[in-house]
Design a binder for these strands. Structure first.
Lengths: 391, 391
DNA sequence: CGTTAACTTTGTCCATATGACAAACAAAGT
DNA sequence: ACTTTGTTTGTCATATGGACAAAGTTAACG
């Protein structure tokens, strides 16, 4: 059964159009909404009054006159509900409460002692209960829970494989749905980061964006035509396993010469140990390396440059394939920005095909450590607004 | 100004829904269309009668009864108009007249003696005039001209760079529009091939498909979510220039170790000359190599295997990034299918991350030499039907 | 400087048109 | 007598355009 178009759909679409206009351009008057959207003034009026009934939109005081009657300004009510967004890392949980505007209302980080799922899961549900207790009263309360995981996740929300956590085939979504009667969203950490950066990291939302999450491994989130692209089964973006060196180093994926064996935090640390820059089993090896570079240790600086070059190789490949507007680098590695950024930029400028360079911008994650949680929040918020519309 | 939804849009959308249902499932009755689309019987009836007025749909005789009144079968009228689709190669022009059903009504190939644009352009317009003379009478006549070019083409239809033709910044679309008062479509040859294969090469239209056009160079056309993805400026898909061997062979793009320096027809020929399998300046070196392999020449067979491995490397990279449903290999290299296919398949099976393999299919272009023209025809046909709808 | 009239902008209300839908109905079969 | 197909008719939801009221601004005039 295909989707048919009738008057109800028309209304739904127009209502979301009005709402998203208000969200994007808040504060805005009814008259401006009509002009921006192209809808009739009367139509806007009636849709807005419904949105006000639903407490998704509020009237603030009158605005500046434009040579006539003063407009009544409309605001999106970001406090109508809250999303719980969690970044599940290899050794930590970052939990946040985020309002509909994308503001972080509350945050808390807890360390994980084990990656064993039977230990992590109760810890996670306990953490969620803690977060739920902190959510302020509001019309819609908690609108959903989103969890970003460093894992390959199917379109159905099942964790297929999380190599760094040693998880396999875990139905996290189902399990959380059973515990909490709320909409649950599970996504790959890089995809969530990409979405977060697109939604909240730019003045002008980019149409095509590639987000490279470089941590222990490398994952890539792709925004194409303003939407997250996740492939046939939901596991696109395993760019970390593209071959950049034929017959190169073995990778845990079974392949040889994978990008993430040359350009990830893990690759950096492995090389640093090999070159005796740091000790085996040292704590915080990554930040120690940054410190070394800060202290003008040439070997450390050179190592960062090498890693930067490899990052550049992989990014250049994706740029040549995608012709994106923006390339954003996120996750752990942003802490070493000053030591790798110049190399990456130089490599890309020298090696991408000429046309790409005009409009291409390469930058580091503006949301820093919050890319993932904000992305997960955006997923839950959009799901909520869609459900709201259909009701 | 955003797109607003009103009753007119609803009608347009429903009308295209009805039409595409008829196209896809022809012959089909009004009642079945209603059931398949979910639209009301009356709605379908009135929309169909408009489509019949526009001669896009015809009634054929009565069909088989299903236990009641016999249905009137509806057919899409593929002869309501014709598209001129041209494959502009490095040394040939393949011109076709294609009806709205995607059937090739007429075809003609002409060799090009020079790649100089000032020579090619008059030759092309002359060729188009010849084709126009062969088009049969029909309600809508020639609905548009589509030209597939091995070049980087902007979203505005300008040829930015065609390395193998030695063209740069040529406004082919504008020039053809001036000569012929018809809708003109210019696209990259790989993009057109991808589109053609998606539309006419499958029983079930794939959602996500990667088409690798492997000829002198390598271009990649991507179908994501059923649509051609062309990137911010229209020049996505330059995957031929991804680095597969760090510090490898120099490429004409200025980079080192590009995929197409190892996996293209040109790479094959260069290697063959190096290994003295064929002479320099020989005619048809590619097909001579195939003949050598056919004659059990082990060196030639090994060379094909090597090239196959490199093709596998690049395809594996794209698979890991895109998680597509299908990978299709097209252009010249399909002639060597029997000598490279096993190697490519073996490499992919061994090296893509496990999840991809379940639903992934790798095949060679079913439309063979017609992928590009059929893709260009599909572009013009879809453009025509859209314009028809809006009228 | 104050007053007033003319014009503008904003937002609501109402009549109208459109197109989908449901149901009744006719036609043509099993 | 029942089923399936296709048309017709009346109803309903919703966007639209224009009229209108409310609340300003601008500029001319005394």
């Amino acid at each position: 059964m295909n989707r048919t178009w009738n008057q109800y759909v028309v209304k739904q679409e127009n209502k979301t159009l009005v709402l998203s206009t208000i969200i994007e351009q808040t504060p805005i008057s009814r008259a401006s909404v009509a002009q921006v959207t192209g809808l009739n003034k009367g139509t806007v009026s009636s849709l807005v009054s419904e949105l006000i009934d639903e407490e998704l939109v509020e009237e603030s005081g009158p605005g500046e006159s434009n040579g006539g009657r003063r407009p009544v300004m409309l605001l999106f009510n970001g406090k109508a509900g809250y999303s719980l967004a969690i970044d599940l890392g290899v050794d930590y949980l970052l939990g946040t409460i985020i309002d509909l505007d994308g503001n972080i209302f509350y945050e808390k980080k807890r360390q994980l002692q084990s990656t064993d799922f039977d230990v992590v899961f109760p810890f996670l549900t306990d953490f969620i209960k803690h977060l739920m207790a902190q959510v302020p009263k509001s019309r819609y309360g908690i609108i959903g829970i989103g969890v970003g995981v460093p894992a390959v996740i199917s379109n159905q929300g099942e964790i297929l494989l999380a190599p760094n956590l040693n998880w396999k085939k875990i139905k996290l979504k189902e399990q959380l749905e059973q515990q909490f009667n709320l909409p649950i969203y599970i996504e790959n950490e890089a995809n969530a980061g990409a979405y977060g950066e697109m939604r909240y990291g730019f003045e002008q939302t980019p149409k095509h964006m590639v987000y490279a999450s470089i941590g222990i491994g490398i994952g890539v989130g792709m925004i194409l035509d303003g939407q997250l692209y996740s492939g046939l089964n939901g596991f696109a973006g395993e760019a970390g396993h593209m071959t950049v060196v034929k017959d190169g180093r073995t990778c845990r994926c079974g392949n040889l010469g994978c990008w993430e064996r040359y350009a990830s935090e893990q690759a950096l640390i492995d090389e640093a140990i090999d070159r005796k820059l740091i000790e085996h089993n040292q704590e915080e090896p990554f930040h120690n390396l940054i410190e070394l570079a800060d202290q003008h240790n040439q070997a450390a600086i050179d190592l960062f440059k090498e890693i930067g070059t490899y990052i550049g190789i992989g990014l250049t490949n994706t740029i040549n394939i995608f012709n994106p507007e923006h390339v954003v680098i996120g996750n752990q590695l942003i802490d070493a920005e000053q030591w790798i950024a110049p190399t990456i930029e130089a490599y890309i400028n020298e090696h991408t095909i000429g046309f790409h360079q005009n409009d291409l911008k390469v930058s580091f994650a503006k949301l820093q450590a919050y890319s993932t949680v904000l992305g997960m929040a955006a997923f839950t918020i959009e799901g909520f607004l869609l459900k709201q519309r259909d009701a």
